[in-house]
Design a protein around this nucleic acid. Sequence first.
DNA 1: CGCGGTTACCCAAACGTTTGGGCCAAACGT
DNA 2: ACGTTTGGCCCAAACGTTTGGGTAACCGCG
Lengths: 354, 354
Amino acid sequence: MGAKKARPVTLQMIADQLGLHVSTVSRVLHAKPGEGLRAASSPTVERVRRLADELGYQRNPHAMSLRTQRSNLIGVLVPRLSDVVLATIYEGIEEAAAEHGLSTFVTNTRDVPEVQRARTEMVLGRRVDGMIFGDAHSDSGFLDEVAARGVPFVLVNRRAGGHPAVVCDDYLGGRMVAEHLLEQGHEDVAVVAGEPYASTGVDRTGGFADRFREAGLPIPGHRIVHSRFDAQGGRAGTERLLATGPLPSAVFVVNDFGAIGTIGALRDHGLRVGADIAVVGFNDTPLAAELPVPLTTVRSPMREMGRRGLRQLVRILAGEQAETELLRPELIVRASSDPGQYERLMAKAVKGQG
Amino acid sequence: MGAKKARPVTLQMIADQLGLHVSTVSRVLHAKPGEGLRAASSPTVERVRRLADELGYQRNPHAMSLRTQRSNLIGVLVPRLSDVVLATIYEGIEEAAAEHGLSTFVTNTRDVPEVQRARTEMVLGRRVDGMIFGDAHSDSGFLDEVAARGVPFVLVNRRAGGHPAVVCDDYLGGRMVAEHLLEQGHEDVAVVAGEPYASTGVDRTGGFADRFREAGLPIPGHRIVHSRFDAQGGRAGTERLLATGPLPSAVFVVNDFGAIGTIGALRDHGLRVGADIAVVGFNDTPLAAELPVPLTTVRSPMREMGRRGLRQLVRILAGEQAETELLRPELIVRASSDPGQYERLMAKAVKGQG
DNA sequence: CGCGGTTACCCAAACGTTTGGGCCAAACGT
DNA sequence: ACGTTTGGCCCAAACGTTTGGGTAACCGCG
């Protein structure tokens, strides 16, 4: 392998080759249109530009960051990237970051407070310009501390303590689900509400419960259980629901992956989702539509949330005021809670078999 | 907001406060055990250490990288983080990186060659010490170019062109699936083989097909279709399979998410997975077990793959020889391809209903 | 011809580290 | 007593940029 480790080309090299001073080259290549006017004559500019990309010049970001005290780096904390919701939000963040010439730095905290602290320090140690937290805990004084230290940041997906955030209107989403189930005539419903420290689950549950209360059907406490946000969590939560009292006619799981666990648990109990019991999820994860009984769910604009989160952070970095954004959710009704669709599904199935 | 943006503490500040020279402080704080012995007297060392963490000193990574020409940064390219397989691998990478004092830098390429190139340049522009590719295309001269430039890298998940890689033994995994289906007496099987440029799908299909050929049951070409690696891809591939010729008795989908699409398509055709047709996936994604009819699949050590990938890269960076690793897969038989389990499932269901 | 204003540059300091080489004094060896 | 070691530190250069401040040459103008 003739793998030469050629020393990268620097401004100095370009300057020497052209008989110019390094500062001139710097201005020619990097000065913003507004200020670099008197940098060099246009033939010189031409020569510099040509040589620069002939040699494949790439600015050394470390030198630049050192000098300017700005790294163009953003730190992103998420509970876990293997959660498709956060992964998708991150895709949005990264996309938008690239458009702004920023790079991102993402790390998993598993929703463990000590890890959040440790990773935050680590990321800050990397001298990022700002942070995006996708793992905010609503109780968290931690974020207040971070804010007090003057670190610019925004929250995405979950809100907390009035810090600038870009989230889905989870409360509204919850109400939409309630509205839908009420229309279907459900009166005895249950909620698998997710982790109590995450605003997502709490708000969704809140909107849902409020709407039912308004309909004169308040949801009793034992019909609301907390659980982890994954399939195992949904399964465990559902088992607890099934263990206490009679079967509800519908269950709202605040997250699609949880809903899959719920579906598994119901199946184990011999219950047919869509027929014996309605199930509704949240997020409209790609596989919701592909499940054997397609899942009713609320579509939240995940990628857009990431994009806007980054945009807000950029505004903060520019010294502007950030504003919390509430993105609009959309209810997607499928067979898991719609007898009409369920019927058609089964009809097709029977025909296919015959 | 009393958000003071205190200038971070530097070696210089510590040195001044202690009446020492900055180089002494540097050696005290950062010299490796072997070489820093004669750096300072132990009382001095004590004083420096104490003051450093009293002031909360954090080494400036940009200055350090600039000086040492080493960034302790690793660039990671994946097709998409919203694919739980890659996300999990990345979790492993990140975990291991943290243990080695490295930070990672991950970005999505959507398997689009131009994006791969562009992102690679971008990441290299950030002066990473090495790269991990999770999106290798088997045809790719691109990786050869990268190697020729002397960039240290390893591949994970997919192998290509003899470059150092850490992958699951996909060929063996495919054989295991074939073995299992042969035991169940299947003679007419089909494969949804994924993207032709990804070694994962190709190898899995290869192992599967070889085993069937050895059993005297070669798989005809029209029984193997290519498709994207997600649910939509699985669905589309399956539709094509169903459109051509009689129903196979089993279908091997080289990826769990694809399998979900397959299940959706079969359901639309009125076919009961596990009864009318067997389905097998790959990767043992968390939801495979939770599906209404639990999915037989091959467990691949994804997180471990990430960890080992990073370890190999570290070895390369240390000047050692990297070696390609083949991780052992494990067959997980569930109801989607096991009549016994399927029976029990249905029995429970009926009992639950009664 | 002197003068103000451009134009087209150069200079040098600074950002915070790391690191090879000094230097001085004390301890040691003979 | 006199070299030699070694402990404990300091010096200064270097990494590649950015940026506020020159300055020399030239132009137009009165």
